[in-house]
Design a protein around this nucleic acid. Structure first.
Lengths: 367, 367
DNA sequence: CTAAACGTTGAATCTTGGT
DNA sequence: CACCAAGATTCAACGTTTA
């Protein structure tokens, strides 16, 4: 595929599965073209014989004295390579999710940090129905760890705070997610009736990831596509996806699965948004519109202070004059203050925050 | 201190706090002398500006000098050094616990693996009452990660499977542990009334670690002793401890704390080793949480019988040991008994059913 | 007296947009 | 990039004061 000189998104093989090795396939994609990467890398290394040690000696699968150090060195080299490609592909405000268990997640996390990714949270997928530890020599391994990281410290990653809060019954989403493992009808079977993939992730997990950290239309890359859970949920949620998968059998199952997915309507895709996404309203507009009269007195939230509205949209109190925020902050001795929720006016004997007037204006603008 | 040629435990400064840097202090201890290490190293939080709650109050951040490192390279070198000393000190079948957050735990885990430690489980401490994310820019950081590792792959670490199972309603203990953070009376205060240490760990966490992975009489080393939670729980549970702490103020608080701890009786310490019927409720959590003290006496509903609480959440009476239900049934000569309503404890001169404590826990967990 | 209201705090990598 | 101002944002557990 030809890259465009601009690295334009039109070069991307959207909504399709690329056959091949994940590192080579990523090399063919343009810089800074991806909004989000979700990666579930293998940790049962079938890499012997296909990779070289850091000193370039070839690792042989059969007769090699395959000690632990070699094993970690090879795994780290593999991790370093695909994470570097992944970072090149991310837009400046892009982010990545990786998932792993204690076998590999510490290598993943350390390498993310080494490459300049900025960890935003680690998230625990707490399985409601894990496989028990049969030998009674360990604790039941009842969770996996996800790491959410932005491309750099200065990035401004997508985070739909209000949508996740709504998913969590009105309290902010925590870093531990309680979700069942993938079983039943959701678990894809091969033609032999056996499970098609050993570690198929539940769609609920991807649903939460994509609702929380992407917007509709975003491009999501999964370099270890497997049976395509990332693609299926992305398509359902109105996101674009690119999958990379080496094994033909997985690609076949994934493509069949994807063909059956019907995207949700735009209406169904709408999520709760934060105030930050709404248009700014100048306090002065409330005065101009006659919603507050110059000279009218406002009361503070706690009732301890008052200030008068002036015709230019500033407030004045005995010792301070300025914006609604500045006056509130000064009177409270606080470094900052949200004047919209701090100041109240009287209507029908009730104290009403001036934020209600702002909301009224926003409602009119939205009509 | 002179090492004995056998590395004998008699050279160990048991049940005391060593003043000084953890690496130097460990160098003075003999090879292969420690059964278990619990380490809560600095997290390298890298906090920048100040953080305020929405009500404008200031968050008291962990900004102590001991948590400051110039780079990952410096932090890694520090980690490498203390983990190497720690490994030298462990007996061949010894094990280590480390605790951290996403800031440092990937460095810890990777270095453990690099040094030949063998990870047995990662364990998630899920906090019932974490600090929220005040700016709505991340997920609530609601957990910390512990890593449990043996000295080598071939080691046979202590694992009290049945005791942990008994603590967990008779089902296998999982890798996610739900426990509150350290607050209230347990949180140690300095003379100024402020918290004595910024990151004091709850005793319930150490209780579970020590019950599960040590035996009475084992030697437990904590190279980052702080205010001595590890020592306090070890002493209570009949384990020996060695603490290393650099800061004099922490040592003073820890020593005062340790002096007040009364070790449990042997009887209370006995830990079940045989299989038995599944208790239906997590009585053990009441013990871990300190709501009932091992050795404490419970009275029967009719006042005719009494039994003692043991550290693994079983009861013992003169002729019978087992779950709260089993012991109640045996003493009454009944086929079954609801231990929750049968057993009572004394609080403020009143007999209160232990069910009240269960209800308290359920309330906390939102059931 | 109790109940309700109010205040405090916890290992935190915690903003955005305009000039 | 620096600087400045607007303005968005919290949950559970304790402890203390008020009604």
């Amino acid at each position: 595929m030809a890259k465009t000189s601009a690295g334009g998104a039109q070069a991307l093989p959207l909504d399709s599965i690329i056959a091949g090795d994940c590192i080579e396939a990523m090399r063919a994609l343009p810089d800074a073209s991806i909004d989000l990467i979700f990666a579930d890398p293998p940790y049962n290394l079938q890499l012997k014989g296909e990779l070289h040690r850091p000193d370039n000696s070839r690792v042989d699968a059969v007769d090699d004295a395959w000690d632990q150090f070699d094993s970690f060195a090879v795994y780290d080299a593999f991790t370093r390579a695909w994470l570097a490609e992944a970072r090149r592909l991310l837009k400046p405000n892009g982010a990545i999710w990786v998932i792993g268990s204690y076998h590999n997640v510490f290598r993943l996390g350390a390498e993310l940090q080494n490459q300049g990714y900025w960890i935003l949270n680690d998230v625990i997928w707490r399985k409601t129905n894990p496989m028990p530890n049969f030998r009674g020599k360990r604790l039941t391994n009842a969770h996996e760890t996800l790491i959410w990281a932005s491309k750099s410290e200065s990035a401004k990653p997508t985070f739909n705070y209000e949508a996740l809060k709504a998913l969590n019954e009105g309290v902010q989403m925590r870093s531990d997610w309680v979700l069942p493992i993938c079983t039943g009808h959701e678990r894809l079977k091969g033609e032999d009736g056996m499970k098609a993939h050993p570690t198929q992730k539940p769609e609920s997990l991807l649903h939460r990831v994509l609702i929380g950290t992407t917007n509709p239309g975003d491009v999501v890359l999964d370099p270890f596509f497997g049976t395509g859970t990332t693609g299926a949920v992305a398509k359902m949620l109105g996101r674009r996806f690119i999958g990379i998968e080496r094994e033909e059998s997985y690609r076949k199952v994934a493509q069949r699965r994807l063909d059956k997915v019907r995207p949700l309507s735009l209406e169904a895709l709408a999520v709760s948004t934060s105030k930050r996404a709404e248009p700014r309203v100048a306090f002065g507009l409330l005065v101009e519109r006659g919603m507050l009269r110059p000279g009218e007195e406002l009361q503070s939230l706690n009732g301890r202070h008052s200030a008068k509205v002036r015709a230019d949209g500033t407030l004045t109190a005995p010792d301070v004059t300025g914006s609604i925020h500045q006056v509130g902050a000064r009177l409270e001795g606080a470094p900052s203050c949200n004047g919209w929720t701090y100041w109240h006016f009287k209507r029908d004997g009730q104290n009403v925050p001036i934020d209600a007037l702002r909301q009224q204006i926003r409602d009119e603008m939205g009509e």
